[in-house]
Computed example of a mutant assay.
Amino acid sequence: MTVLSSPPFACLDIEDLPADPQWLHQQPHPVIALGESSHANADIVIADDAELQLLAARIEQHPLAALTLVQVLRAVEMLPLPAAMTVESLAYASLQSGSEFRQWLQAREATPREIHSPDSTPAIVVHRQGDRVQALLNRPQYRNSITVEMRDALIELFELVLIDNSIRQLHLSGRGACFSVGGELREFGLATDPSLAHWIRSCHNPGRLLSRCADRVHVHVHSACLGSGIELPAFAGRLSASPGSFFQLPELAFGLIPGAGGCVSIARRIGRQRTAWMALSGKKINARQARQWGLIDAICDSVDTVD
């Protein structure tokens, strides 16, 4: 736990919040509002003390990541998408060199290493029929975690769509028990130079590429969609999910924030406050709630049932 001299968050009743929207930007830490309103001048709105206790415990355990998260969400709200992703990446880089992430790495003990499939099968299987491309994440043995290998395969896939205007639609889904559990934790810590990691996210980022061809991309997810396993799909022009899908942003527990574009892609689907709630609480939401919030566009059995 990081010990700071000032309180790691502020909690006020909705009625006591200042009306000036600039007030929130002047607060360095998360501002939690108690009450019911989607227009509160706060980072997150909750209804009861039980939820406050959960949030307080998580924020107090990772105050630097929590502070960084809400500052990023505030800053990117009105920025163009490319600039917003740059802000997220710079903030993520600062946390990569921070004490909270370092403590998580030390507690894990295992040495970071790149994860490769023992066979020669491609990380993503791609089939084309006419003007439609069907792509499947193909690392079910790793629950389709976003490894370096998978990241590079996604970059190649989205570059193909951007280059080839004859591709009318890309349908992306995943093989195996779930769509993706997000970043491969065994690879966390490989980037020892945060500035170089920022360069990689700036120049080799599947989310940036997907955002540029989003109107031609339909992603269908199923079961677990964690971290970048929902951050990346949220950039798609159409995002559907199987009935048993669930969504979670676990990065705060590592001393980090969503770093695959989620502070931008998810916030632009469900809003800044709900994104903050997902990241600060670490709670899962199911497909029905995700549909109600607008995180996904449809609930269906497969990618083919909504065309």
Score class of each variant (00 low, 15 high):
residue 286 N to A: 12
residue 34 L to G: 11
residue 73 L to A: 04
residue 141 Q to I: 13
residue 244 G to Y: 05
residue 8 P to Y: 05
residue 47 A to W: 10
residue 85 M to F: 07
residue 285 I to D: 05
residue 263 C to N: 13
residue 34 L to M: 13
residue 306 V to H: 14
residue 228 S to A: 15
residue 176 G to R: 12
residue 7 P to C: 01
residue 286 N to W: 06
residue 45 V to H: 06
residue 144 N to T: 01
residue 171 H to I: 10
residue 100 E to H: 08
residue 25 H to W: 04
residue 139 R to V: 07
residue 9 F to V: 02
residue 274 R to N: 12
residue 281 S to R: 00
residue 64 L to R: 13
residue 135 A to Y: 07
residue 152 D to C: 14
residue 148 V to W: 01
residue 88 E to C: 05
residue 44 I to M: 12
residue 209 L to K: 09
residue 138 N to I: 03
residue 207 G to D: 03
residue 68 T to D: 13
residue 71 Q to N: 15
residue 269 R to V: 03
residue 300 C to K: 11
residue 260 A to L: 10
residue 117 S to I: 08
residue 109 E to A: 07
residue 281 S to P: 10
residue 147 T to C: 05
residue 158 F to H: 07
residue 176 G to Y: 08
residue 105 L to F: 00
residue 59 I to K: 04
residue 194 P to R: 10
residue 86 T to D: 09
residue 161 V to D: 01
residue 185 L to G: 15
residue 43 D to Y: 00
residue 35 G to T: 05
residue 65 A to F: 03
residue 254 F to K: 03
residue 33 A to K: 08
residue 53 Q to M: 09
residue 66 A to W: 01
residue 3 V to I: 14
residue 241 A to M: 05
residue 135 A to G: 08
residue 159 E to A: 10
residue 254 F to P: 00
residue 250 P to W: 03
residue 47 A to F: 08
residue 31 V to W: 02
residue 29 H to S: 04
residue 127 H to Y: 08
residue 171 H to A: 14
residue 75 A to F: 02
residue 213 C to D: 05
residue 124 I to R: 00
residue 43 D to T: 06
residue 171 H to C: 09
residue 40 A to S: 01
residue 146 I to M: 12
residue 173 S to A: 15
residue 82 P to H: 04
residue 217 V to W: 00
residue 197 A to Y: 02
residue 145 S to N: 13
residue 125 V to W: 09
residue 51 E to C: 12
residue 105 L to T: 02
residue 300 C to W: 02
residue 224 A to N: 10
residue 157 L to T: 03
residue 16 D to V: 08
residue 177 A to T: 14
residue 107 A to T: 02
residue 261 G to H: 12
residue 153 A to N: 04
residue 193 D to L: 09
residue 96 Q to H: 09
